[in-house]
Structures are given as C-alpha cells and as structure tokens.
C-alpha cells in the first residue's frame, strides 16, 4: 500500500490487528503442537492438562523413528520427493506450453478444447479412476512401483487453465506480434518471450502441484505397498503399527512437513509475489 492516502479505510484498526494476530496464532498452533508431542515421552503426550511446551526428546524420537525400519520413513521421503518433483516438472512444462497456445495462438477448436479442459478439471480422477487405474496397474505389474503414482498425475487440467489465464494477462499481444514480424518461430517465441513473462505463475503452479502430489493419499494407499511407500503412507503405516506411540507418529508427521516448509521458506517471497500478481484467478 505504497500510496498513502489519508483515507481511514486503509487504517489498520484494533479489530484488524486482532484478526491478524488470531490468524497467525491459529495457523501456527497445530504445527507447534506437533513439535510439542514429537519432543516428549509417550506418557507426557496424554497428560491432562496437555503439555504446552516442547520437551527434550527430539534426538531420541528421531532415532526411534529411523529404527522403525518397517515403516521405511526415509525411503518414503525420498519416494515422495521423486514423485512430486517429476509430476511438478511435467505439469508445469505441459501447462505452460498449452497455456501459451490457448492464450496467444489462433487455431481452430481452441475454444472447445479449453472448455473440455475446464470440464475435465471437475473430474475427480483420483476417485473416479481408482478402480480402473488399479486394475490397469496390476495388469501391467506396475503396482507397488513409483511409476504407478507418477503417471496418472502427469497432467492436470487446473494447471493448463491457470497458465492460460496467467499468460493471457502477463504477455502482451504486441510482444508476440513483434516477435512474429521478426520471423521468430512459435517455439522460439515461447522460449524467448512467453517463458520469461510467466515465471511467477509457473512458480506458484509448481508449488501447488508439488504440494498436491506430496499430499496424495488415496491413490498411493491403493496402489503402493508398505515396502515402497510415499511419506504419507509411511506415516499412516506408523499410525497403524505404533498406535500408542504418539511421539513417534508425531515425529514422522513433523519430518514429513519439513521439506515443504523448506521450499516454502526458500521461495516464500516468490510464491506470495506470484499469487499477488494474480497467478491464481478466474
């Protein structure tokens, strides 16, 4: 709010401050609670009143988590990373290409095709496809492998839609035209003109897709097995085996969040910037 108008509409009153303080507090508390339990003993975890400060068992609980070999927690982390990264790359690349085509190229049927994508956005592939995809993976003997959790997510209607919207507003038509006049081919225009302009949008899409894939639960639960889990499955297996060991389970959940937090903190400004520039909008 660089334009300092004297208007009282922009003045942050006490109500505003309370709203924001509550917002920040509520956002942080469950994560904080996760750390409390993850650093305590099992008995303390179920005390009444519940503990409100972290304990000193961080190292011990990490060690116990790694010792629980049958949960394959580290393998789960690595697997999730591979899956989420591959899916993110694919979705961002495919969406950026298609978004450019829909936003800036003239071709017959573009409108119909875009509308098709919009409708496919509403297809809950994870639920709708779960039975046939599973039967398909078993047929191909891909069940239990990472292929099975990567391939169905390589495209994403939301991504195309978002990149179409973003490209439309971020790339001026004149720029594309000027490049054409200079004799640049379409791919060259994409690379030289479009890509630099849509980067903030790509960053936001990348974060959203990475997170969504990282958090995928139902499909991995169906198609993977505990020997080769994603991190979400690994936690859910911990949850099934060590039902009464809250610190262990919470340590797993805490460590499953760390990579996302890391990305978030590293690229936070970029992501907020991208969102603020209207990366996600109708």
């Amino acid at each position: 709010m660089s334009t300092a108008t004297g208007s009282r509409v922009w003045h942050a009153g006490p109500l505003t401050k309370i709203t924001l303080a509550l917002g920040v507090l509520l956002s942080a508390f469950p994560l904080y609670f996760m750390i409390i339990i993850a650093t305590r003993t099992n008995d303390e975890a179920v005390d009444v009143p519940p503990p409100l400060l972290p304990g000193g068992r961080l190292g011990e609980n990490v060690q116990r988590l790694l010792d629980a070999e049958e949960a394959h927690f580290l393998l789960g982390l690595a697997n999730s990373f591979i899956v989420a990264a591959t899916v993110t790359l694919s979705v961002v690349a495919i969406s950026t290409l298609a978004g450019f085509a829909f936003a800036k190229l003239r071709f017959r049927g573009a409108k119909v095709l875009l509308l098709t994508i919009l409708i496919t956005m509403m297809v809950p592939l994870q639920q709708m496809g779960v039975v046939p995809l599973y039967l398909m993976m078993v047929e191909l003997e891909w069940n239990g492998t990472l292929k099975a959790v990567i391939l169905p997510f390589l495209v994403n209607g939301f991504g195309v839609f978002m990149m179409t919207q973003y490209t439309t507003q971020a790339v001026p038509d004149e720029l594309v035209e000027a490049a054409r006049v200079d004799g640049a081919a379409t791919m060259r225009i994409w690379w030289n003109v479009v890509l630099p302009a849509v980067r903030p949008g790509m960053a936001v899409l990348a974060l959203l897709v990475f997170m969504q894939t990282w958090n995928e639960f139902m499909w991995p639960l169906v198609v993977l097995d505990p020997q080769n889990p994603t991190v979400q499955l690994s936690i859910s297996n911990l949850n099934g085996q060590y039902t009464n060991d809250y610190p262990l389970i919470f340590m797993g959940t805490a460590l499953s969040v760390v990579p996302l937090l890391f990305i978030f903190v590293l690229f936070g400004r970029q992501i907020v910037g991208g969102l603020m520039e209207g990366a996600v909008k109708a």
Partner: peptide, 29 residues
C-alpha cells in the same frame, strides 16, 4: 534471480528423478 533459483532447483529435482526413477522406483521393492 529468484526464478533462476527455482529453475535450478527444479532441474536438480529432475536429475534426481531421472537417476532415481530407474534405480529407485523398482528398487524400493
């Protein structure tokens, strides 16, 4: 600058995925 960082990170991920994809996806089992 920031975009370059994102791109670099993604490339690194791709590399990891490419190396890991073959070795790890079947290799987990």
């Amino acid at each position: 600058g920031r975009f370059a960082a994102v791109a670099a990170a993604l490339t690194a991920l791709l590399a990891a995925a490419a190396c890991g994809g073959g070795g790890e996806s079947g290799g987990g089992a």
